[in-house]
Design a protein around this nucleic acid. Structure first.
Lengths: 96, 96
DNA sequence: TTGTCAGGCAAGTCACGACTTGCATATTCT
DNA sequence: AGAATATGCAAGTCGTGACTTGCCTGACAA
């Protein structure tokens, strides 16, 4: 589970999740072009591929191979677990 | 808000939040000893201090100065926002 | 005032992660 | 078969962040 935090650390990986959240099941090339267009991400294909590998090993992205294509799907389950690790508390005293 | 992710990236900073979540309003020295005891964190006081500064600038920790003591409080509000950025979706197709 | 305790500032080292470049593999099309 | 497409592997560079060390500031007590 600690992989999730490190996966979200890099600023580029958040737009990747945004993209997959908006349009699930994209291929690597698809993601590259859409990230460049809408999110201003100017990275090589290999860079995006490495980021996807990190996200996948963190459980935030699952993949499905089909012929020469590899489709990427977002999995938001680990993200929900973050908020549950430190549940909201009542305020003990007034702090500005 | 992107500071929150970078703040959570370092593995040592998560036990710090755990400690503050369990016992809110600790001082720096208090945190150091308790982290060493219960979480096996063997870091210098300055290291913990720097981590607390990162957590504070990310909005995850607030502080209150009182005499020569500085009390630290956890703020879980930014953590809830993480889960809301990528809301859970219905599964589009069966993926293992 | 002098000593002690809590915390802060600054600079330096060091390792790890992010990107790139270059080549290799596998699948589909003609 | 051969070319084009989609992706993977490996090594190398480079910057940034995590820790430490050393000294300084401010508050309280004797």
């Amino acid at each position: 589970m600690s992989d999730v935090f490190e996966a979200l650390a890099a600023p580029v990986r958040r737009p990747i999740l945004d993209e997959l959240h908006e349009r699930d099941g994209q291929t690597l090339f698809e993601l590259c072009s859409r990230l460049a267009m809408k999110h201003g991400v100017a990275l090589t294909r290999q860079a995006i591929s490495q980021h996807l590998a990190v996200l996948e090993s963190a459980g935030l992205v699952t993949t499905k191979r089909q012929g020469r294509y590899k489709f990427h799907y977002i999995d938001t389950a680990p993200l929900q677990a973050i908020a549950e690790r430190w549940p909201a508390r009542r305020r003990k005293r007034g702090r500005p």
